[in-house]
């Protein structure tokens, strides 16, 4: 098996009295796609944010390429430059054009020359068929287009790992397909991804690993075949029955 990119070991996260993650452990290898499934409030989003150091953890450990992120000498900004994140609500920067949204990270975080990064950004837009919309503002794009721009915005940082937080949940059903197609494309090209999703068919198609969370507890994990066709746990079975 190839190198371990991300490893969570007994991660605990509390918000005041509310324990959102109760000792979650998982490993993600290079070129692997893992899907987090579970009801809303099961801790999927929190887990992704902890991996990105957008939240601090209250127990356990997270490491990226074998380096423990809890170490005080770790620079969170450097960590985040290697981890891309895409949000449910796109979070494009409304005051910047599409191309400037994509260039913000390379230019101001990686300190690359704008002219150098520009062609790559255009190539990324070309890939999602939005090259001719480069100079428009995000509000002029449809939800699906915005979310695809958000995905390539994080790709522009050439991350080692992509975290996706229910990226199709805020979309009109007719626009879900174009975003999932892009993600499938990325998966086939070997992008390492940790995806929180409610799209079970998509998860079954792209993931090597399915992780089922319930109330902050990792109930069951395994291959799509194991989880979707032969779930061992009652909770998993019940959840899958409800979403089908």
């Amino acid at each position: 098996m190839s190198e371990v990119v991300l490893e969570l070991d007994g991660v605990v996260k509390r918000f005041a009295d509310n324990e959102v993650l109760r000792g979650v452990s998982l490993k993600l290898h290079r070129h692997e796609v893992a899907c987090l499934i579970g009801a809303s409030g099961s801790g999927k989003s929190t887990l992704l944010r902890c991996a990105n150091l957008l939240e601090t953890i209250d127990g356990g450990s997270i490491s990226l390429f074998g380096q423990p992120l809890g170490d005080k000498r770790i620079d969170p900004d450097l960590v985040r430059r290697h981890i891309g994140m895409v949000f449910q609500s796109f979070n494009l920067f409304p005051h910047l054009s599409v191309i400037d949204n994509i260039l913000l990270g390379p230019v101001y975080a990686l300190k690359r020359k704008r002219a150098d990064a520009y062609d790559e950004a255009l190539a990324l837009l070309d890939r999602i068929g939005l090259r001719d919309r480069a100079d428009e503002y995000p509000e002029r794009l449809s939800g699906g287009q915005q979310q695809r721009v958000a995905i390539v915005r994080s790709l522009a940082m050439q991350p080692s790992l992509l975290l996706l937080d229910e990226v199709t949940s805020a979309l009109d059903p007719t626009l879900v397909g174009e975003v999932l197609d892009l993600l499938t494309d990325l998966a086939h090209n070997g992008t390492t991804m940790l995806i929180a999703t409610h799209e079970m068919n998509f998860a079954r198609d792209v993931a090597q690993q399915i992780v089922f969370l319930e109330k902050g507890v990792l109930v069951e994990q395994g291959t799509p075949d194991q989880i979707f066709n032969h779930p061992r746990e009652v909770a998993t079975r019940k959840f899958l029955e409800r979403v089908r």
């Binding site: 900004d77 430059r81 981890i83 994140m85 949000f87 979070n91 494009l92 920067f93 990270g105 975080a109």
Partner: peptide, 17 residues
């Protein structure tokens, strides 16, 4: 919106940027 901060920080931008 808080999401703007999250998006910018997750791109690796510093607090100041």
């Amino acid at each position: 919106p808080h999401g703007q901060l999250l998006a910018a920080r997750s791109l690796g931008l510093t607090q100041t940027s």
